[in-house]
Amino acid sequence: MARIIVVTSGKGGVGKTTTSAAIAMGLAKKGHKTAVIDFDVGLRNLDLIMGCERRVVYDFVNVINGEASLNQALIRDKHCDLLYILPASQTRDKDALSQEGVGKILEDLSKDFQYIVCDSPAGIEKGAHLAMYFADDAFVVTNPEVSSVRDSDRMLGLLSSKSRRAEQNEEPIKEYLLLSRYSPDRVKLGEMLSVDDVQEILSLHLLGVIPESKSVLNASNSGTPVILDEKSDAGQAYADIVARYLGEEKPHRFIEEKKGLFGKLFGGK
């Protein structure tokens, strides 16, 4: 049986697709057969971030409609043999996804995969609902910014009431906080909510902090998940997150500001 992870946030532009690509790659690199699914029907982008946009033949909706088999639609990642991508459809039909159809695909994938990562679209419409409905774990991607924190809290409410586990009175979805685009220096200046502030407001288990990093844009420019950039801070942050999720003990990094020469001279500690 596969473990189903939804990467969600409510708000757009906080790093859901970047996170989905990175953690799916991280799980696969750790030896777990992983599928990552783009639920953003009409606005697919996971294929671009994963660098497989030119290999898309069939998509999620084709499989639901029986126009293609799962094996035909799944794209094997060029960096890792254990990672497969199921792209979203570019159809404008909002009702292309059905609960039965999604449930059937996840059930079929569960037989063969260890982890299924569902990249949720922004908002609380059907695509976002279906991405979270069957989840076992939720990665709530949040930026240290008021609208993102509020939307994350809204998503927490939906995760605990509108999911399969909630409706069937099963053990609730495990929720984790991933705080992204974090700038320790701005936090120190009092210009940005701190990790502690966000955790206090959302009361969520912190899986990791991803610092604001130039490497994220570099990675998306070239279509390689940022976790493969092992020298970058964001890549290392995602590697830590995957390790922590799999049960390894890793101290949190990227919460304190990096000290350059200036900091060393004036930083005191």
């Binding site: 924190v149 509020r150 009092g190 210009e191 909510l193």
Partner: peptide
């Protein structure tokens, strides 16, 4: 550096306070 920083109150504390009230109400 702390000497210069202490003279300026950041906006993050305002953000936190607003969010705490809002989130409690919405919950």
């Amino acid at each position: 550096l702390d000497y210069f920083r202490a003279s300026k109150v950041g906006s993050a504390s305002v953000a936190k306070e607003r969010l705490q009230i809002l989130v409690a109400h919405e919950r």
